[in-house]
């Protein structure tokens, strides 16, 4: 089987059986909380939350995602999920708050923009909904028609406009929540592995799409977050990269790759003192040596490499 077919099947498993809820998402990942982390696993909580959303048990989903964002505070995807849980309970102000955080941590999450606008409409805050529309209008103008996000932006705008002009027939609120379909951990693994391959090939945009798809399945996994940061950094999106690195380290402070890449980020920013701190941290984390330490050392002392 060709690798592209395997990935296509994984993506299909993620999106089949209903309208895709993918495409958005911010920092995800998680599962490996550090020894200083919480006494629960944010990835497991994420999985529980997704299952509860599937079961339309929004209260239970809210509880799960609140536990997730308590650890993964800057994880856009988890805030988005929390927003859906509130939305399903007709808690539109709370939903808008969560969607706003999702957008703040990942401005490219067009699903979150759309749901933010709809939540504002539902809570009779038309002015705020119009502000979201204006933001989307700006994104559309920046994007132009050839942009790969053009259709998604149009859809987000259309969703908000539709909410502003409801048909006479009453619509069940929960039906507005995007369908969440079953996908297995294996699909997430496959997407993640392939994303690393794409990163190695310097195909960063494609890698980000797959990492975000993996994140939707796996939840806030620090491996996924770290490589979302890495791919964004390589694209020149240094602030986005920092957000992802920070999100990964919130969940797993001792994550080797996240610590290494954060150090590289500091070198790129000219902040050699912070980079040196990262190197010292890696030295402590790897008493028997590790690649991450050596790679960051090479960034700091390239002549010695």
């Amino acid at each position: 089987m060709t690798r592209s077919l395997m990935i296509a099947l994984a993506m299909l498993a993620l999106t089949s059986g209903g309208p895709a809820f993918a495409s958005g998402g911010g920092g995800g990942g998680g599962s490996l909380p550090s020894s200083s982390g919480p006494s629960y696993d944010p990835v497991e909580e994420y999985q529980n939350g997704v299952q509860s959303l599937r079961d339309s048990d929004f209260k239970k989903a809210e509880k799960a995602f609140k536990r997730v964002v308590r650890v993964a505070r800057t994880d856009a995807n988890s805030h988005y999920m929390l927003g859906l849980a509130h939305f399903g309970q007709d808690e539109f102000k709370s939903a808008a708050k969560a969607f706003a955080k999702s957008v703040r941590y990942d401005a490219t999450n067009l699903d979150a923009h759309a749901m933010l606008g709809v939540a504002h409409v539902k809570s009779d805050r038309i002015g705020k909904a119009d502000a979201v529309l204006a933001t989307l209008g700006e994104l559309k103008a920046d994007c132009a028609e050839a942009c790969s996000n053009a259709a998604a932006i149009d859809k987000a705008i259309a969703d908000i406009e539709a909410a502003k002009n409801p048909s006479t027939e009453a619509t069940e609120t929960s039906s507005l929540i995007p369908a969440i379909t079953q996908a297995t951990f294996e699909h997430g693994d496959l997407l993640y592995s392939d994303a690393i391959r794409l990163i190695n090939l310097e195909r960063y945009d494609e890698a980000i799409v797959e990492l975000k798809a993996a994140e939707l399945i796996l939840g806030p996994h620090p491996d996924v977050l770290t490589y979302l940061g890495f791919a964004n950094r390589k694209k020149g999106q240094s602030e986005t990269a920092l957000t992802y690195y920070s999100a990964a380290l919130e969940i797993a402070p001792d994550h080797l790759n996240a610590n290494e890449y954060l150090g590289e980020y500091y070198v790129e920013q000219g902040n050699l003192v912070s980079a040196q701190v990262q190197l010292m941290k890696l030295e402590a984390l790897c008493p028997f040596g590790c690649t991450q330490t050596e790679e960051l050392r090479a960034w700091l002392t390239p002549d010695a490499a």
């Binding site: 599962s31 490996l32 550090s34 696993d41 001792d254």
Partner: peptide, 26 residues
Amino acid sequence: MADPRRRLKLEFAAVCVAVTVLATCQ
């Protein structure tokens, strides 16, 4: 289903966790 400890193994070796279903390090 595959052994969960195999998931996302690229980095797990470094990141030990308190409670995890994906526990690849113990």
